[in-house]
Amino acid sequence: MKRRRFHLELLLGAKVIDREGKFAGHIEEVRAERLDGETVVKDYLLGRGALAQRLSITGLSTQAISLLGGRNNVVTHRVPWDKMDLSDPRRPRLTCRAEEMEAVG
């Protein structure tokens, strides 16, 4: 595969589908770690919210309601870097099935 570059900020809120074309979530966060002197992507955190996340308000609406004491956690699933196909950064795809994603929080 050729080396390609993409902009993380444009990936935010992107809709992710799984191997079978099923909706898996929107990208909310990208986690990185230090490895052999480089900073590399470790995994992607997905959330299931729709419009609020697309506007990258990260759940302002849900939080407005949960403000009065509720907890606010929009992230639902974790995808390791090697399970995410970014050959077209506008249409990220899982290389596995949505059900195989690890739930978080």
Binding site: R5, L86, S87
Partner: peptide, 21 residues
């Protein structure tokens, strides 16, 4: 930090963070 550039390399290597824009 208005943007972050990431480079996708080999299938066996994790994407690398290369710059802040």
């Amino acid at each position: 930090a208005d943007g972050i550039v990431i480079e996708v390399r080999d299938v066996n290597q994790p994407p690398r963070v290369i710059a802040i824009e």
